[in-house]
Amino acid sequence: MTTTASKPLSTALYRSRRLRLGSLLTLPLVWLVGLYIVSLALLLATAFWRVDPFTSKVTPAFQFDAFEQLLANEAYLSTSLRTLGIALTVTLLSAAFAIPLGIYMAKVASPWVRGFLAVAITLPLWAGYLVKILAMRVTFTEEGFFNSFFGVFGISGPGFSQTTVVLTLTYLWFPYMALPVYTAIRQIPVNLFDASADLGAKGWTTVRTVVLPLLAPALIAGSVFTFSLSLGDYIAAELVGGATQMIGSIIANNINLNPPVAAAFSMVPVAFVVLYLLATRRTGALERM
């Protein structure tokens, strides 16, 4: 029999469950708890601090002034609702593009076309975030590509507006929806499509009754990205939104002037995301994730 004496460390790791867990979790836990959660908690704690009205100095306290300011000012409410609307529209648009594209890629396209489209979807992820927003800016500016091209037909573009913010955010976050949806469609056995047609369902009925329910987990995974990333964005609003304000814009404006208000307002998107996750959990789709 030939046995090679293993290194003692490997043996100890293999035998001790605690050591093994420790070596797996130390780094991620330091990162997650130390940096991520603690800094978020500190930010939220700031919401209860006090701003000296004369010196603008912030001192630790426990008061609800920031929240009262939020509730008192209608602009905050309308901005919250506008941001929610933008995030939901971006999510719906991404899903509406991703589903037919995914069905085409997974079930119709030749391997070559499929590969090309997969690259086409993921390639923009390599370009910088600002670069992509600037590209949209160039497209939709007054003398930009959209107006000079479609102007010939008497169509004028949306300019810098809420519509352009929606288009830009959809452009930015679409890959995060398209990839999970495409992967999920690939996993639907072809013969489910056959079976549905065989039982009398036409194309749209099959999509509605077979494809969509089976895609629910992927749609939710994708929408968590498109929804929460849109909810937190403010640079798109600033660069292509014209006068459009989002939650992020207001937080950014207040971050130096009035940190407690900025912190309090930060809780709004967090609350939206939590509500969104609770709503999706009710559909039961998370269990099948």
Binding site: P189, N191, L192, D194, A195
Partner: peptide, 9 residues
């Protein structure tokens, strides 16, 4: 169908 093709959901 050979592998039944029942709708899993």
């Amino acid at each position: 169908f050979q592998d039944y093709a029942l709708f899993p959901h």
